[in-house]
Design a protein around this nucleic acid. Structure first.
Length: 292
DNA sequence: CTCCAGGTCCATA
DNA sequence: TATGGACATGGA
């Protein structure tokens, strides 16, 4: 069992609610008290159950023996996933100082920027979600995961990891077509998987670069545009000044909250985000949240 | 029926 | 450099 202190401006229920937004999610199971998922650590896959007790986050690995090294990795995973180590009180002060967002801290108190820890998963999820409705996006992701994702049974339930790049590369184009991936998405998924398999793309290497280099590296892959690069930068690489330019949801939220144009251009978006230096990713996250 | 969704690439001018 | 079409499907 692992226990993690959470600190101020954290609300576990708000985070769980974000994880369970009504879509059919195949990579974890959420209730009002806990979330269970199978995660990949360096040596193997481990099932974890995460819940809150006495203002602490508790992680259990039911029916599994873990070494100290593995426990440390699991702790790191959950800390990163829930962004636990960040003190976001500065963000709340900024929100309060801006009239249009002054009620955000009370409305969304304790909501963290939930991450996608696996870089391959993050990139694929972006490609899957490009230009289709999220219900359908979850449907085809689920088909892919259930088809080739590592899984583990626990109490009659199956829990899945997102597939590895090499597992995706073993698929034939027709397999993905049968899951209703478009030809474009299939090409993009293979491009991304090959970048990993070819050894010139991985998370550690990206994390060693500065932000600008990271974006430049990601944009080289066909299928990854500015939206995906920024989304992954915020959800996986954990940069704090990312903006999902061109995102339809973000545009709608900016229109609603700041009375911008229906589709504000980059300059108009930057103008609003400028005063949130250091917290742009969080502002983006909270603006998305404000739509639901 | 038409439009458009957590975009991106490619062809054309 | 800028703009338009294709992409797969489903919900409004």
């Amino acid at each position: 069992m692992i226990s993690i202190e959470t600190g101020d401006c954290f609300n576990f229920s708000a985070c769980l609610k974000f994880l369970d937004r009504g879509y059919d999610e195949c990579l974890y199971q959420v209730t009002d008290a806990y979330v269970i998922r199978l995660i990949q650590i360096s040596s193997r896959n481990v099932l974890i159950k995460v819940y809150e007790q006495d203002d602490k986050i508790i992680i259990e690995c039911p029916d599994q023996k873990c070494s100290d090294t593995e426990l440390l990795e699991i702790r790191r995973y959950v800390t990163d996933w829930f962004d636990l180590h960040r003190d976001i009180s500065g963000f709340y002060k900024l929100l309060e100082s801006v009239p249009q967002t002054s009620d955000f801290p009370s409305r969304y108190y304790g909501l963290r920027l939930l991450g996608i820890i696996d870089l391959f998963e993050a990139l694929c999820w972006c490609v899957i979600g490009q230009q289709i409705n999220l219900t359908f996006a979850h449907k085809i992701k689920s088909r892919l995961v259930h088809s080739i994702g590592k899984n583990l049974q626990y109490k009659g339930q199956s829990y899945y990891c997102f597939p590895t790049p090499s597992a995706v590369l073993e698929l034939h184009e027709n397999d993905l077509k049968a899951m209703q991936f478009s030809r474009q998405k299939i090409t993009y998924l293979f491009n991304i998987a090959e970048s990993f398999a070819g050894g010139w793309l991985n998370k550690e290497q990206l994390l060693a670069m500065n932000e600008e280099e990271q974006i430049r590296t990601l944009l080289k892959i066909k299928g990854i545009g500015p939206w995906t690069a920024n989304y992954v930068s915020m959800k996986c690489l954990r940069n704090m000044n990312c903006i999902a330019y061109g995102d339809t949801g973000l545009s709608a939220a900016l229109y609603k909250t700041f009375s911008t144009e229906r589709k504000p251009d980059k300059n108009a978006v930057d103008k609003i985000f400028d005063r949130f230096e250091g917290w742009k990713s969080y502002l983006n996250h909270y603006l998305w949240k404000s739509l639901s």
